Simulated scan of single mutants.
Amino acid sequence: MAKKKNITADDIVSFYMDYVLENEKEPSSIYKFSKTNNFEESIFYKYFNSFETLEKHIFNAFFNHTIKALEADEAYATYDNRTKLLSFYYTFFEMLTANRSYVVYALNKHKNKLKSVSMLSKLKESFGHYISSLEIKTIDLKQEKLEKIQNKTIMESGWIQLIITLKFWLDDTSSSFEKTDIFIEKSVNTTFDLLDTKPLQSIIDLGKFIYKEKINMNI
């Protein structure tokens, strides 16, 4: 039988996900995996250099498909940052739910939790860029180094929130994962309430004023 030639990265992803779900383990080698699916091994290496790289790609693909779906909705561009992030979460977890069997397998297969975290490294990078693109309003600290630290903290906090939500979803036994939807709404809204810079900025401005006036009065 002639080998399949027009194999795409998405085809390989589909072959891989089907294999691990049917066999509850990853293929023993790229050679055997390619042979089983009737394509040249070299085609696999055209897109990925290992199964580990492929797994990282899969979780990042869930992110990319989520962004694509959001941007296809004209209304998304008109949303404020809070609503955009809520929309991202709902859409992303719909994507994960559609592939839940694979996600559960992939995240639970390693006894070493660090490997599971490593599997999400590309997703973390993409999600970090997404959080940065929202340009969430922060406190004007007037110092570049402090601004960078503040922005990095927001990105890291956003990632931790996503991981916590992922863990909640994995453990959720409610119908249609409705408890996860509630958790998303409450956690994202709480995050934005805590990031509301107006009250805190007012406190900082007041502190600066008092400090300045105290110095002037002491001169």
Rank of each mutant, 00 (worst) to 15 (best):
E26W: 02
F127Q: 02
A61K: 12
A9E: 15
F39T: 05
K122Q: 13
D80F: 05
K115N: 08
A61N: 14
I30H: 01
F15E: 02
S126F: 07
K145F: 05
K124N: 11
H110P: 00
K167L: 14
G158Y: 04
F168M: 07
I139P: 12
D80W: 02
F63G: 05
I164D: 15
A106E: 12
N6D: 15
V20G: 03
S28V: 14
A2N: 08
A98M: 09
S202A: 00
E144L: 05
K186S: 09
A106W: 00
K46A: 01
L114E: 13
D10G: 01
L146Y: 08
H129Y: 12
N108R: 04
I136P: 13
S29D: 07
K111P: 02
T53R: 01
K142Q: 11
N6K: 09
E71C: 06
F63I: 04
F177A: 01
Y102W: 11
I184Y: 11
Y19M: 01
T78D: 10
S133M: 09
A2P: 15
F177G: 00
D193Q: 11
M1N: 09
Q150A: 06
P27S: 08
K212L: 06
S174W: 12
I219H: 13
T190Y: 13
Q143Y: 08
K25C: 10
L200W: 15
K137E: 15
F177Q: 09
I67P: 06
I30N: 04
S50N: 03
K109M: 05
F59T: 04
I58R: 02
S87L: 09
Y76T: 07
I204M: 11
Y19T: 04
E24V: 01
T91W: 13
K35L: 11
F63W: 03
N6F: 14
D73S: 05
